[in-house]
Design a protein around this nucleic acid. Sequence first.
DNA 1: ATGAAAGCGCTAACAC
DNA 2: GTGTTAGCGCTTTCAT
Lengths: 341, 341
Amino acid sequence: MITIKEIADMLGISTTTVNNVIHGKTGQVSKKTIEKVQKVIEEYEYVPNMNARNLAQNKSKIIGFAMKARSDKYENALKDTYTGELVGAIEKCLRISGYFLMIYISEDLNQIINYVSTWNVDGLILLGMAGDDCILLKRKVNKPMVFIDSYFYEDVMEYVNVGLKDMQGGYEMTKYLLECGHRKIGFVADNCLGVDRERFMGYKQALTEYQVTYKDEDFFWLTPGEKGMEDSLKELFKHLPGYTALFCASDYYAIYVMNYLRDHGKRIPDDISITGFDDNVYSQIIRPALTTVHQEVSQKGEIAVEKILKLVNGEEIKERIIILPVKVIARQSVKKLTKTL
Amino acid sequence: MITIKEIADMLGISTTTVNNVIHGKTGQVSKKTIEKVQKVIEEYEYVPNMNARNLAQNKSKIIGFAMKARSDKYENALKDTYTGELVGAIEKCLRISGYFLMIYISEDLNQIINYVSTWNVDGLILLGMAGDDCILLKRKVNKPMVFIDSYFYEDVMEYVNVGLKDMQGGYEMTKYLLECGHRKIGFVADNCLGVDRERFMGYKQALTEYQVTYKDEDFFWLTPGEKGMEDSLKELFKHLPGYTALFCASDYYAIYVMNYLRDHGKRIPDDISITGFDDNVYSQIIRPALTTVHQEVSQKGEIAVEKILKLVNGEEIKERIIILPVKVIARQSVKKLTKTL
DNA sequence: ATGAAAGCGCTAACAC
DNA sequence: GTGTTAGCGCTTTCAT
């Protein structure tokens, strides 16, 4: 690896000049010199040393992507199609803009905070942070940050978040089920925070609107992990009688539920209707194809990158809270009941 | 962000001493000083500046993960569960070892090579590189490298690769089909290079062993991309008569094929048997559950990390070519024909 | 149009 | 036990 100094010495000129041609500041450099320098650069395949550059400029060209991995839930956070697609989209956009993606997944928020300052990351994209964590981050990290899928229940103005109309998604999906004649609809999730909470609120709202009373037992809790899933699915099955539909908070779980029920003799959608949320690849591929709420995952990533780069460049951001639309995709996993309840 | 120098000045001591206590080289430092320094470190939340450290030591704590994205095939390389799980496992192992993961996906190998020297990456993990690319990499990158899923058809000794008994997987899967009474078995893939080639070779070998002649038309080509898939699936359907089984080179495609056929009136496995390769989450979840070849993806990632870190630390590696085992998982997508051919 | 030199924060060889 | 100092490769201000 040749350095600027070496090039300068080799050509008997100063590092400033070499640096200038490297950066295209050729206003003040003679044609001859430019050519000489460029020739050496080509020949010796000069590549800048990022560590040196970053040190001198007190910045990095790194955008960090961080998420909290709940070890119970994820033995591997990128196994989930949703995260994979999101990260893939982010990497692509960043690279096109000349930035680099560094991934950091940890259960410990303080590790994440350390990581930011250690690398002097130019900006941070954070996935699925919960309320308190956001506050802590805002307090301790003084770098541009963009959140994805976070909900702030306090002063909104400080944060930049790209999210989804989760509540509306929950509402519309439920409404769809209600209009198909379903009245006994369960909600399936592994938590009731953040996006899932919103989806749940939408679900309740729709029920209310149709004069269906929600009872606590209508919430079917799933426990992540191999063993947990097995148990909670069994539990779910036990409480199923009476229900005609289950609204799962994610496609991932919808597919699990669908197959568990089928393996235990239920026909879908004849015996029980199932819906999901996300519209991932596999929801389209499974049979019966899953009726679900569509979202544009790649777009989420792209917008997050756009926002973070604006912040990094000190540009003003008018829209700090971006909320992408949702859309119910009716496929084959819901039965239309005759409306004679 | 406080610096070592600032700590030293603040305490009226030298940077060396501060540095020593930071690195636990406290053999020569007095208890008192140690405590003083540690107090300041705590209080001011000292965090090392990686760029400075790396510059001084001529290394980084970065392990790069690179793959070539064929833009036709992947609009998003991490959308695929296989890659996602692999990268997730790698990130986790690296973090535990105090390293950082930087992802770099590009269609252009030269960009990948540049990236390595720009960041002075300590090591590189490369996924699915083909023959010529491997040679180029070996020539131009003089950093430790570990390949995943590569096949080198020349001098093997120089490379470190963690792969799979792909051929054996192909062989055993095919053998399984043959023993179930199938004789007209198609092979489905989108290429015939690298791992897919090996799987295909295994398939052919099994056929030969059972005195079944392979004809070129038995290879069903898939074209990636939305439109391409549609067309090639249609083509596949047209040539299906006569076949009793299809062996797909990946679960991903198997699931596509399965559903396409089902949507067009075929019953699985009654009309046609389908098998896959990889045993990803969704192959277990789909119904009928997919008969496939299992591999331990996370283990692949873990071993890759183990190897790269050994190389980075200058340790000798005895096993340079690691080949993980495969195992046929018989589920419900294959029909046992009566063996009266 | 070109150059000299200081400095970014950390490391490590060497001195006392 | 502690301190001095010269780099690492690049940027940038200020001279010339």
